[in-house]
Structure formats: structure tokens, C-alpha cells
Amino acid sequence: MLRLERVSKRFDNGYLALQGVDLAARPGEILGIVGGSGCGKSTLLRLMCGLVPPTHGRVWFGGTPITGPRPEIGLVFQEPRLMPWLTVAENVQFGLHNLPRAERAARALQALERVGLRQFADALPRELSGGMAQRTAIARALVTRPSVLLLDEPFSALDALTRADLQSHLVDIWSDERPTMVLVTHDIDEALFLSDRIVVMRGRPGAIHAEFTIDLPRPRIRTSPQFQSWKERLLAALHAAINGEATAA
């Protein structure tokens, strides 16, 4: 579906953010990408949606190389990034510029229904709480019906309760429509709760350190012993990735 082929990214200032990354998201799965800060995981996501071009290697969407943003790939940022002058419904419609007005409005309401914000369609972003704003951003990404949804630490700015709530919500949306999701996070718990597969990254330069297939049944119970033992395995891998980086440097 979405595939990185020996991708490296060097920024204009000479910093090598990613080196030789091979990674593929399988259709319909949730792929988690975890790593310490500055390991290039956000850059990876920006490469996947065509916001930045790779220095070496290719990013493929199906059989075509990605050269820029495209409607089949949606992105949810770390912050909601809503237009403060547009209402919630107008924000959700933002990416639907080629459709007739009535169709846009109908799809926006549908997407808002999906994230439980239908009654806030006419509110302005300033009236929303952090969690509601991020739900609006998710609705904005879903409304174009992307086959791949990329999420860049989407819940990291929220409080623990809201975060857990939105994570469950995301699983619901995913089980209904089964889009491919790629989730970048530094939160092991979040990755484990959501992902079918988790990739642990090491940094400087960013590369894939380890890959795990998470066989936990859904819905996942965070307090279950299996969940906890997975958590320990992942933490160990993450520590190894970070320490390996320190000794190499």
C-alpha cells in the first residue's frame, strides 16, 4: 500500500535525519512507529505524505511514487491546526474543495457525527476544548475518505483521560472502515493499544531498530498481563535503541 524503499533524508543544513529506511504499511493495518525524540519518526511521516521529498530512495503509494500530497493519504498533526476563522463544519470541509456545496456539507456532518461533534458544527474553534479540537482535526482528515491515514503524535497534547477516550474512538473508526493507519508516537502504551505492528526506531541517523507484530486480541485491555508483558518487551527494545545510539555516538 504505502512503501518506503531505501529512503534517506538529509536536510538542507546537512543533518541526516533518516538513513536507508525500508518500511511498508499493509492494507488495513495500524502500524505504530515509536522512538525517542529526534529519531526522525515525524520526518518519516512527512515523507509518507509527500510533504517533504526523500534525498535518496523512493516512497511508493501502490504502484506510483509519491511526489507530493495526494487525497488518498490523510494526515492528522500533533496539534489540531484548525482555521480559527472557520466553523467546525467548515474546517472539516476544508479538503473537499472539488465537491458541490451540498455534498460537502453532508459529508462534513457525517464525519462530525463519526467523531461525536455533530452538535458543534457551527461552533468556532476557540469554543472547543483540546480534545474536541483534535477530534475535529480527525474528522477533517477522514472526510476525504483517505485509504491511508497518517497520525503524527495526534494525542500527545491531551490529558490522560481524553487521550484514552480518543484512542478507543480511533479504534472504533478504524474497525468500521478499515483504512490503513500509520501512527507515530512516543507513547508505548498508545502504540500497544492501537497497533497491529510496531516499529521501534533508533536515532541519529534515524533507522529501524526492531519490528514487532502485536498479537493481542481487540479490544485491548491495558491492565491485562499480556499487555503489560508486551509493554516491557517494547520498553526494553526502545531502551536498547536509545542506548545503542548513545554508544555509537
Partner: peptide, 24 residues
């Protein structure tokens, strides 16, 4: 960050000016 949202939705230069830059 708002301009980047426009890029994700592949806005043309004119649409970017009209829909993001001028209101902001």
C-alpha cells in the same frame, strides 16, 4: 502550521492565498 494544512490538501497558490493567507 496552517499553511502546511493547505499543502496537505494540495491547494493551488491562489486557493492558498484566498483560503488561508488572507483570512489569517
Amino acid at each position: 502550521k496552517l499553511v502546511e494544512v493547505g499543502r496537505i490538501y494540495d491547494l493551488s497558490a491562489w486557493a492558498l492565498i484566498r483560503r488561508i493567507l488572507l483570512p489569517a
